[in-house]
Nucleic acid binder design. Sequence first.
DNA 1: GAGTCGTGGGG
DNA 2: TCCCCAAGACT
Length: 366
Amino acid sequence: MLDSIDKNLHSLNIEDFRKDLISWYLLEKRDLPWRINQDPYKIWVSEIMLQQTRVDTVIPYFLAFTEKFPTLEALAEADEEDVLKAWEGLGYYSRVRNLHSAVKEVVSSYGGIVPDTPEEISKLKGVGPYTKGAILSIAYNVPEPAVDGNVMRVMSRILSIWEDIAKPKTRTIFENILYEVISKEQPSEFNQALMELGAIICTPTSPSCLMCPVREHCHAFHEGVQRELPVKSKKKKPKQVTMAAAVLKDAEGHYYIHKRNSSGLLANLWEFPNCETTIDIVSQKEQLVKFLSDEYETEAELEPLTGTIQHVFSHLVWNISVYAGQLKPGSSYKNLVKVTETEMQRYAFPVSHQKIYKMSLQTNEQ
DNA sequence: GAGTCGTGGGG
DNA sequence: TCCCCAAGACT
């Protein structure tokens, strides 16, 4: 550990810091649906959902998900199609495929009981260093650190740490510190308090230091550099991709949809047939028709461009031109699935393709 | 270690 | 408008 960090850590009154932090948390903590009890399964679900996702976004998904799959066994026995549907729109879909797989593993290897040791729980798919600490501390009161973005931001300010928190290696610095600082009596409250403080008071751009219960312990506050911390290098711009999608219907009103590959981007989700095209708008429709013929052996008549939708991912941007179209009578449709409008509601689509569907409906009305 | 993997909200 | 973010994990 760096000397300056070590120096500031040992100047911290750890007992008072814990007490001030936890006292504040017990008074000010938000009422969140995963704080009703300590059911390890529901804590687990909430922690997976909260990865890189805001609390306000997660709440309705958590309520619906735990109503549909109330127990670990219920989730383990569910069809993946239904599990993905419950995650539709939440993003990072590998999270729920890993959760589903891990829950089955808990049933087969641990008798349906979520393991309570760092070694065992870390073997489960989708449970990394943060989630391990979060579940163990919150559900089982085990004094393991749970270092997320909040914790790195708060502790970088408290101890004036100038390491780049975007680098994976930096997380271990905070873990080592927190093994010392975490409350051994109240690890659950301590970990949640640190995250709650980061979410409510010690926010990224304009921290509310005057309302902070631990500002007297904070090196950054005393030095007036709380706005300069944490140090976080920025990532590069996402790559632009030009695409075209076809909402194909037949004379009976069926839709023709495609299930995506089982790995990679938006794995196992459903979509309207689409392909990457050149940026040449004049020939784009012909490129799409050729793709539909080559890939799916369809004969289709596409209408003029309906419109475009944009979808921004973390690392790329889809610019999608939408074409409504008719599948010709008797046409084949290899690797596509023919569904009614009602049946289609049972499948999970990425948000971009929900937008594509809505756009196609607007044209039908005209 | 850097890239992959979603989405919607806020400054 | 644009950029960054939000309770990360996996390859």
